[in-house]
């Protein structure tokens, strides 16, 4: 009986371990480039980029560097 319990626990660990070890944040940006085309000089323009967290761990954005 103890052996069966141990085996069940061991199997559960085996199944959960990869998820725990390989859980990683992942960032997906569907449209990472936007073409504004013609833009009048000295104008404020804007575009919204969507950032999707598609990993298995919380994605933390630590810094942003403008290009």
């Amino acid at each position: 009986m103890i052996k069966v319990k141990f085996l069940a626990l061991f199997t559960a660990c085996l199944l959960l371990l990869p998820g725990m070890v390989f859980a990683q944040p992942k960032l997906t940006i569907p449209d990472s480039i936007f073409d504004f085309g013609y833009v009048p000089q000295n104008s404020g323009i804007s575009h919204v980029f969507w950032l999707h967290s598609t990993g298995t761990e919380t994605l933390k954005i630590l810094s942003v560097k403008p290009g």
């Binding site: 504004f36 085309g37 013609y38 833009v39 404020g44 323009i45 804007s46």
Partner: peptide, 22 residues
């Protein structure tokens, strides 16, 4: 606010124009 909108044409170059909206 200071935003913008972008339009695209169906010419060969698929030209885009961004118009600031303030």
């Amino acid at each position: 606010f200071e935003k913008s909108l972008t339009i695209e044409l169906n010419d060969a170059a698929k030209s885009r124009f961004t118009v600031p909206v303030k």
